[in-house]
Write a protein that binds this DNA or RNA. Structure first.
Lengths: 205, 205
DNA sequence: TTTATAAGTGAATGAACATTCATTTAACTT
DNA sequence: AAGTTAAATGAATGTTCATTCACTTATAAA
């Protein structure tokens, strides 16, 4: 990505607007109609480019789908740790992450829904981006919380299921209602905080 | 369904094996390749019938997909409440349901994975089966637990997210590992019980 | 201004698609 | 045994699909 910015080149530069239009329209179509609903010709039409243009940016349809996911995952994981400091208390750290995630979802509902759709699809089996920095931060955060006596020792998947599984479940609830009612997506801070309190209680030693 | 069993008829009876073969192969193909991967001709070949035969059992592809989901949802919800008594304690009731769900998932991993795939897809927006009996049982169960002081008052989606969201999250973890490692699906009772204990603690007033 | 290079294109291609249809087959009634 | 009904079929239909290709256009170096 962005080769034309980092390398001097003799070529005609790529039009970033085109690339973004393709990506955003692809997210939209997939969220609305599923992967089945995305054909290269429909996508090209929606993005205002020629079908052949898509093949300049992506090797083929499969590459397009995986690139879309990597893009979404990177953005989401990056946003989740915005302003995150692994040395704060468990409750404070989780609260920040929940708020960050919710903010991203509210601002980018289409991208998030695509992310969830892909995560739950058979396409996910392929190798994906590493999330190294994200994992390192989380390991540190958990270790600190255990040492401080805020968190019981447990297997990582149990921690994840309690600390985040309930959050995602709550979000799913609201996204489905939104889809059905065509209302705005909105979880109140109070509802989130109430749920988080329960989660923190569960995680105590 | 099963019209030939409940009504006397003058017609040639439907071959139940064919219907089941179509359904089971459809689940398999969709779980392995996604909805994109299911074409009527491939399904027919896999089930050992003619493409036209599928249209005897289902109006069209869309009807097939929704019927598959209704079938899976009914089986799963029925199994979840097997031996369930809404008057038992919160922990006992949740434990039974978790065990039931896990047993179903272990015995029918393909059906369950299809169920999750469909639930997370745009196809879910259409009207689906009512689950009336299931909901009635749950309302009673929750009411009892609150009266007994085992459960704090909270909005239903919060209860659901804590009491089941973490369970599903745990299952997802293991199913993904299984897919990647081609191992057998296995969550130990101890791991489940540990998680349930934490959940029950969270739900206390 | 010329030249090189890659961005961008519309039309074309063969494969795969959902669905239909004329026909055959099996079961039950009389 | 004859008649009726619907199950079951393989081949056919018209459409949509992913991808390619010969070509044009825009950019920057020379």
């Amino acid at each position: 990505m962005n080769i034309h910015l980092t390398l001097p080149s003799e070529m005609r530069i790529r039009d970033e607007h085109k690339e973004e239009a393709i990506r955003e329209k692809a997210y939209e179509i997939i969220v609305k109609k599923g992967f089945e609903g995305l054909s290269m010709q429909k996508l090209a039409k929606a993005a205002g480019v020629s079908p052949a243009t898509i093949y300049i940016y992506y090797k083929n349809r499969e590459d397009l789908l995986h690139s879309l996911f990597n893009h979404a995952q990177k953005e989401f994981a990056f946003f989740a740790l915005r302003n995150f400091d692994p040395s704060v208390s468990l409750e404070e750290g989780l609260w920040l992450q929940w708020k960050n995630r919710l903010a991203f979802i509210s601002d980018n509902p289409i991208i998030y829904q695509f992310f969830e759709l892909f995560r739950n699809s058979p396409l996910i089996n392929h190798k994906n981006v590493s999330m190294k920095e994200f994992k390192e931060n989380m390991v540190l955060f958990v270790k600190n919380a255990i040492q401080r006596g805020e968190l019981a020792r447990m297997e990582p998947e149990i921690f994840w299921s309690i600390a985040y599984g309930s959050f995602y479940s709550l979000v799913k609830f609201h996204l489905q209602e939104k889809k059905m009612m065509t209302e705005n997506f909105k979880i109140t801070d109070a509802k989130m905080k109430q749920t988080l309190h329960m989660v923190v209680k569960a995680l105590k030693p």
